[in-house]
Design a protein around this nucleic acid. Structure first.
Lengths: 136, 136
DNA sequence: CAATAATCTACTATTCCGATAGGGTAATGG
DNA sequence: CCATTACCCTATCGGAATAGTAGATTATTG
């Protein structure tokens, strides 16, 4: 299941992408529109800023805004930042690989075999979608 | 992330599928071979029995055994029993659908749109795999 | 300077997962 | 028929992760 963090993060990105000009939008405005706790959203937007998706401006007329064109924001990238691994098992992950302690032989593990197939396909879907694709 | 319950459940099914004859295998034997806590595995096997995948025989020489041919055990079915919904969001699920409370309009929700695409693809993969496909 | 809005630190409540304990019940073999 | 074996059920529990909260601080604008 997708965490609310990821869900809210993508919603916020979508909200910003749908703005006409790219002027800063306040946290409170996004939170109200998407029914998200302000403080929780705050931490998510901060993460997205540190990850290079958003810019922020303090003071009057400040807020968050997209740094990149929605067409250049890859959803697989967003997913990994917010949610973590795309694979459903650490032993089936590229970017977050970890061996299973209970697994004596990765090569013959049926679960891993299946989860790698699922992972490859999910990755393909996420990579083929940009923020622009899902927002418009 | 896949729960250990699902992981162990699939491992146990695989273990049983790989038995030469289909004679009962004791819980302890599966647990030892796959490094699973006996009591935890016990509850998983019980669930799989109640779901019509396994049969059980009590008393001396008893244990669990597959009721159906591995070729007829669909991994999407197994997944839903053990893990629950295949979709990453309740609002993107067929069998476990629930509307999102924070979502004012499902039709324009970008997250839902993306997650439905992921779901459709994952389902396709799981449905196209049987226990026989991954065990052998 | 004063108002505004992001930033940072720290804390709390809740939920779920994985595991464990202990006893009860049913079916075998001898 | 009885002891053994192994399935079956209930209850509980620690720890991690998630989701949300509170308050103080810093930077910007007018």
């Amino acid at each position: 299941m997708l965490s609310k963090k990821t869900k809210y993060g993508i919603k916020a990105l979508t909200f910003l992408a749908r703005q006409k000009d790219n002027s800063p939008v306040q946290i409170a405005e996004i939170a109200k529109s998407e029914t998200i706790s302000i403080k929780f959203l705050e931490s998510i937007l901060l993460l997205l800023r540190h990850s290079g998706f958003l810019g922020a401006k303090k003071g009057k007329g400040g807020g968050y805004y997209l740094i990149k064109d929605p067409k250049d924001i890859n959803m697989a990238h967003v997913y990994r930042i917010l949610e973590g691994p795309i694979a459903l098992l650490p032993c089936a992950s590229h970017n977050f690989y970890e061996p299973c302690l209970d697994c004596s032989n990765e090569a013959t593990c049926a679960v891993r075999k299946l989860m790698i197939e699922v992972r490859d396909n999910t990755l393909k879907i996420l990579e083929s979608n940009t923020l622009a694709d899902i927002a418009f």
